[in-house]
Design a protein around this nucleic acid. Structure first.
Length: 518
RNA sequence: CGGGGCGUGGCUCAAUGGUAGAGCGCUCGCUUGGGGUGCGAGAGACUCCGGGUUCAAUCCCCGGCGCCCCGACCA
């Protein structure tokens, strides 16, 4: 059996599914599945059409939720004058090491070499936005005078640049796409409500759209956003046992309104600085999606994010059969589209059906319909699912058979939407079951070490009362960190209650989430 | 910025101190079609760059550049 070169060479992980190798297999999948690749510009990524289509679907789902919570979209400049960044001290030092800086505005040919024209040096360098707080708040100063102007609820879809030392496709690239919400409020309470509301939006999106279960909680001081008083986040668990921060929402207090001098006159007529929040998610979510659901056959996409939900493959021998099966395929496609299902008919000629199956499975299409001469005779349709929950001991061959079902035409078409909905739920359940199998409540360092060094790791609920230095110690010894201090309702029942810090033995009121992370 | 690995047709990789070969992909023809059809023909490479050793370097040595992986930094 001949296979394409990119699959002949199986990654080591397919043979030895060691957790550590597994992640690399997924990163490999990203490339092989033609979602994205690194661009010639160091550390940047090129998102290919199939990958971008997933991001577009994410955008639409998120944008609907932002609108539903009263937000509007706007756009602010890519370039930030250096002095703006210097205004908020902690913010500036937090981003200082990772900024791209524009210093000239013209090129010149000197001795055949194209170089920045020394004459064109900018008086003040411009920073390519690593995030937009400073430039947005410089605008808000003009937009906010009275309590009647508040709350100001704005979101921006944009690209940002962070010149990281080390990049990872989808998880950390020099340039990435994201959305950043920046809101202004009259009171602290209102701003804090906004912070919580948007985190809930993210959690809802992660679980119900991405089918990735998440833990909501607060960051420790060391992991907080530069310039924030409080950072809350959602944390997901990837299949290699590492945690991934999937979204953050920050309470900024009056830090940015003070440095940008944004005051409003309250009902009593007194001037006051406004209260700020910011929140964002990025194309990293596409990485999260892949690393949560993919299997050895390639991507697995939840139906709600699949750019193509159903692919129809006509099967034929003769010209005449080709005409008939293609015609029927198009009819079925039209009927499904009328129901709002995203369908693609794969009419490529000269390609074996099997080759098409492999390709679409690799790209994560949830359902495949096969329309062949036998179906036309019997008035039936063959439906094949991308995945099923595993039955222990089952061979791939057996599962392949189990994944296919032959139904009468009308019944088959009626079953598509319910099946997609069911698959969406199953995927979340599958991810939940995986997370549960890799989650431990741990009280002793020996068990902790064993969990992370021998058992593949995952989420550990442990009591913690250590200092920032002691967090570093845990990082050095076990490569783990405090992912978040969970909201109390996020703790599993067996992890509730007081106890003693796993490292210092000091009393602790609540367990925190510890894990290795990206 | 440290530690490791690798640079050979478009891709994935072989081989050899005497200037290269396969699979896939691509083009053409036939064949085939419910899980990666089969056959034939064809196009396509100054073996990353610079220097050294040698009668002779893609191979050995030194330097550079680039890429990948692992750490520190981070969404």
């Amino acid at each position: 059996m001949n296979k394409p070169a990119d699959q002949q060479k199986k990654p080591a992980s397919a043979v030895t599914p060691r957790a550590q190798d597994y992640a690399q297999w997924y990163l490999d999948v990203i490339r092989n599945a033609a979602l994205a690749e690194h661009s010639p510009v160091r550390g940047c990524m090129v998102i290919r059409p199939h990958g971008y289509a997933i991001w577009e679907k994410m955008q639409r789902e998120l944008d609907d939720r932002f609108k539903a919570t009263g937000h509007e979209n706007a756009y602010f400049p890519l370039f930030i004058p250096l002095s703006f960044l210097a205004q908020e001290e902690k913010h500036a030092s937090g981003f200082a090491k990772e900024c791209a800086v524009v210093t000239h505005h013209r090129l010149k040919s000197i001795d055949g070499q194209i170089v920045p024209d020394p004459e064109s040096k900018l008086e003040e360098p411009l920073v390519v936005r690593p995030t937009s707080e400073t430039i947005i708040w410089a605008q808000y100063k003009n937009w906010i005078q009275s309590y009647r102007d508040l709350p100001l609820l704005i979101n921006q879809w944009a690209n940002v640049v962070r010149w990281e030392m080390r990049t990872r496709l989808f998880l950390r690239t020099a340039e990435f796409l994201w959305q950043e919400g920046h809101t202004a409020h009259a009171t602290e309470a209102e701003a804090r409500e906004e912070v919580a509301r948007m985190l809930d939006v993210y959690a809802d999106f992660a679980e119900n759209v991405m089918a990735v279960p998440v833990v909501k909680g607060a960051k420790t001081e060391g992991e907080r956003f530069a310039g924030a008083l409080d950072t809350v986040c959602i944390e997901g668990l990837m299949q290699d046992g590492k945690a991934l921060q999937m979204g953050t929402s920050h309470y900024l207090g009056q830090n940015f309104s003070r440095s940008a001098d944004v005051k409003f006159q309250n009902r009593e007529g007194r001037l006051e600085y406004v209260y700020a929040t910011s929140w964002g998610v990025s194309t990293r979510l596409v990485g999260a999606l892949i690393m949560t659901h993919s299997d050895d056959a390639g991507l697995v996409l939840p139906p709600r994010l699949a750019p193509i939900q159903v692919v129809i493959v006509p099967i034929y021998k003769t010209e005449e059969e080709l005409a008939r099966t293609v015609e029927e395929s198009r009819k079925v496609a039209a009927e499904l589209r009328a129901q709002g299902v995203a369908v693609r008919v794969d009419e490529r000629d000269g390609m074996m059906p099997g080759a098409k199956y492999y390709e679409w499975e690799g790209k994560g299409v949830p359902l495949r319909i096969e329309v062949g001469p036998k179906d036309l005779e019997k008035g039936s349709i063959c439906i094949a699912r991308r995945f099923l929950s595993d039955i222990p001991g089952e061979t791939p061959e057996q599962q392949r058979k189990r994944r296919k079902s032959f139904l009468p035409r009308a019944e088959a078409i009626a079953s598509i939407k319910p099946t997609l909905d069911a698959m969406q739920k199953e995927l979340l359940e599958k991810a939940r079951a995986f997370r549960a199998s890799r989650t431990r409540v741990i009280d002793a360092l020996e068990a902790y070490e064993k969990f992370f060094k021998e058992e593949g790791g995952g989420f550990a609920w442990v009591h913690w009362a250590g200092t920032a230095e002691q967090e570093d110690e845990m990082a050095k010894r076990f490569e783990t960190s405090v992912r978040c201090i969970p909201f109390t309702d996020q703790l599993p029942a067996e992890a509730r209650g007081e106890g003693k810090c796993i490292l210092t033995g000091k009393p602790s009121a609540i367990r925190v989430l510890m894990s290795k992370s990206y």
